[in-house]
Each structure stands twice: as C-alpha cells, then as structure tokens.
Amino acid sequence: VRQEELAAARAALHDLMTGKRVATVQKDGRRVEFTATSVSDLKKYIAELEVQTGM
C-alpha cells in the first residue's frame, strides 16, 4: 500500500511542478489536496513515505 501512496504522491508533485493548480492524494485513508503553495508539505509527505518503504 505504501508503494502505491508513494507513487501517487510523486505523481501529484509532478503535476504541481508542471503547472497543475491542485493535486489530490489519499493520505491515511482520507483525501488531501495540495497546491503550489503546499509543495514543501507534499515533499515532506513523500520523504516520510520513502522512509516507511525503505527507499
């Protein structure tokens, strides 16, 4: 499950970095929206997932 969450989070980051205004991911069973202003929060979430998956 964590691998899927990590892939979704990375895709969301890619979307935001390429101009999409809002990206949505499932985080702990709930839907979370990230915007360009919350990229740093999304990067932290990705880092947490990488630690949890041993990457």
Rank of each mutant, 00 (worst) to 15 (best):
R2E: 09
I46Q: 00
Y45C: 04
T18V: 09
D41S: 09
D15S: 10
T53C: 08
T24P: 04
Q26W: 10
D28W: 01
L42M: 01
V51K: 06
L13R: 00
A23Y: 03
G19P: 01
D15N: 06
T24Q: 05
E4N: 09
A12E: 02
V1K: 13
L42F: 01
R21W: 06
A8W: 06
R10T: 08
S38Q: 14
L13I: 03
D28K: 03
Q3M: 14
A7R: 13
V39W: 05
E48V: 09
K44G: 07
Q52P: 08
V25D: 01
V25T: 04
K44E: 11
M55R: 04
A23I: 08
L49P: 00
Q52K: 11
R30C: 11
G29S: 03
K20F: 04
A47N: 12
A7D: 12
Y45H: 05
V39A: 06
L16E: 00
A11Q: 14
L49D: 00
A23P: 03
Q26K: 12
K43Q: 10
G54F: 10
G29V: 01
R10N: 08
V25I: 14
A7P: 03
E5V: 10
A47T: 09
K43A: 11
A8H: 11
T18R: 11
R21Y: 12
T37F: 05
S40T: 12
R2W: 13
R10D: 02
V32C: 06
Q26Y: 15
S38N: 12
V51N: 11
E33F: 09
G19D: 03
V1G: 11
A23S: 05
V39K: 04
Q52H: 07
G19A: 03
A11I: 10
A12K: 02
V22I: 10
S38G: 12
R30F: 09
V22P: 03
K44R: 13
L49M: 08
V1D: 14
K43C: 09
A36Q: 09
M17H: 05
A8G: 09
V32I: 12
G29H: 04
T37H: 12
M55H: 12
V1F: 14
E33W: 08
F34L: 03
K43L: 11
R31E: 14
V32N: 03
K44S: 10
D28V: 02
E48C: 13
Q26E: 08
A8K: 09
D15F: 06
Q3P: 09
A9S: 03
S40Q: 06
L42S: 00
D28T: 02
E33D: 08
K43T: 06
Q3N: 12
I46A: 01
F34V: 03
A36W: 15
K27F: 09
A12Q: 02
T24G: 07
A47W: 12
T53P: 07
G19M: 02
K27P: 03
V1S: 13
G19E: 02
E50K: 06
D41R: 05
A7Q: 13
V22G: 05
L16P: 00
R10E: 05
Q3K: 14
A9G: 03
S38M: 15
E4R: 08
R31S: 13
G54I: 12
K44Y: 09
A9N: 01
R10Q: 11
D28F: 02
L49H: 01
Q26C: 15
E5Y: 04
V39S: 04
S40C: 13
A47H: 07
D28Y: 04
V51T: 13
I46C: 01
K27G: 03
A36Y: 06
R21L: 15
V39F: 07
K20R: 03
S38H: 11
L16C: 03
A8E: 15
Q3C: 11
K20Y: 08
T24K: 06
E48Y: 06
D15H: 09
A7T: 10
L16N: 00
V22M: 09
T35P: 04
A9P: 00
R21V: 15
F34E: 00
